[in-house]
C-alpha cells in the first residue's frame, strides 16, 4: 500500500507477515469486508483506523484464521492461510484471561500448554509489569489495567512473529491507557516483531504505528488510504500530541477519516 523505499526493500527480502488480496468476508447477506488489499510487511507496526462497525475485528479474525474469507485470500509469511494461523498472537478486545487461573498462571498459559513450567518466567514478567505480589490474584480481583498487562504478557511470551491487537486499550482510562501504550512500545522496541493494531482512535494509531491505514465505513469496508508515520522512535506518548508533526499527520489523516465516521453515524 504505502510506497517507501524501506518498505519495498523489506518486501523483496522476506515475505509479508500478512497479505490480503481482494479479500472479502460476508456474514450471511451482510458483507463486512470487501475487496481488501493490505500488506503488512514483516517488522512493521501497522495500525488500522476506522469508524466503529467497519469490520476491523473481522480483518483480525481473518488474519488469525479464526474465520475464513468468503472472497479472495489471505497469506501469512508467504503461505496461504488454512485454519488457525500458527504465527500469530492475538490480544482480544474483550478480556480473554481464564477467570479460574491466577494472574501468574495466566501469564504462563502458553508455557503450560506446551508442557513447560513457565512459573519463573511468569514471575519475571509480573515484576517487570509492576505486578509483584499480585501473582496469586484471580482476574476477578484485578483492575482493568492489571488484566491488560497480564494479557499482553500472555500474548508476548510465545514469541510469535505477528501480534494482532484489537482495540486493546479502549476500555482503559486515559492515564492507564498512555502507560500501556508506552509499555507496549518499549516491548516492541526490543524485537520489533510485526504488529497489526486495530483502533478507532486516530491519536492512538499515530502515536504507536509506523503505518496507519484508514478503513472506510461498513458495510463492505475496505482500505481507502495509508500513511507512513515518520515520527522518530522512541516516542514519548504523553507529549507526542503537542508535536507539530503529529498534528500535521493527524489533520491529514482525519481529512480521510472524517467522512467515513460521518457516514457510519448516518447509516
Amino acid at each position: 500500500m504505502y510506497r517507501s523505499q524501506k518498505g519495498r526493500y523489506n518486501k523483496m527480502l522476506t515475505p509479508a507477515a500478512l497479505q490480503f488480496r481482494q479479500t472479502g468476508r460476508a456474514f450471511g447477506p451482510r458483507l463486512a469486508v470487501d475487496a481488501l488489499n493490505l500488506t503488512v510487511a514483516a517488522g512493521e507496526f501497522v495500525a488500522l483506523v476506522g469508524p466503529s462497525g467497519c469490520g476491523k475485528t473481522t480483518i483480525l479474525n481473518l488474519a488469525a484464521g479464526l474465520i475464513e474469507p468468503t472472497k479472495g485470500e489471505v497469506e501469512s509469511f508467504g503461505a496461504p492461510l488454512k485454519g488457525l494461523n500458527p504465527k500469530v498472537s492475538y490480544l482480544f478486545q474483550q478480556d480473554a484471561l481464564l477467570p479460574w487461573k491466577t494472574l501468574e498462571e495466566n501469564i504462563a498459559l502458553s508455557a503450560t500448554l506446551s508442557g513447560r513450567d513457565g512459573r519463573d518466567e511468569a514471575r519475571e514478567w509480573l515484576e517487570r509489569l509492576g505486578l509483584e505480589g499480585f501473582g496469586d490474584y484471580f482476574p476477578a480481583a484485578a483492575s482493568g489495567g492489571m488484566k491488560k498487562r497480564v494479557a499482553l504478557a500472555q500474548q508476548w511470551i510465545p514469541r510469535r512473529p505477528l501480534l494482532l491487537m484489537d482495540e486493546p486499550f479502549s476500555a482503559l482510562d486515559i492515564h492507564t491507557r498512555q502507560r500501556m501504550e508506552t509499555e507496549l512500545l518499549q516491548l516492541w522496541d526490543e524485537d520489533r516483531r510485526t504488529v497489526l493494531f486495530v483502533t478507532h482512535d486516530l491519536e492512538e494509531a499515530i502515536a504507536l504505528a509506523g503505518v496507519v491505514c484508514v478503513l472506510s465505513a461498513g458495510p463492505a469496508s475496505t482500505i481507502i488510504n495509508s500513511y507512513r508515520i515518520d515520527l522518530p522512535r522512541p516516542r514519548a506518548i504523553a507529549d507526542l500530541r503537542l508535536d507539530p508533526r503529529f498534528q500535521d499527520l493527524y489533520r491529514n489523516i482525519w481529512n480521510d477519516l472524517r467522512p467515513e465516521v460521518l457516514r457510519s453515524h448516518a447509516g
Partner: peptide, 23 residues
C-alpha cells in the same frame, strides 16, 4: 473468546477440555 484464545496459544482439544471447558 476464551476458547479462541486458548486455541491460538496452542491448546489441543484435551487441553481445551482441561483448562477451559471443565473449569
Amino acid at each position: 473468546v476464551l476458547i479462541d484464545n486458548a486455541r491460538l496459544l496452542g491448546a489441543s482439544e484435551s487441553q481445551l477440555l482441561r483448562h477451559v471447558l471443565m473449569p
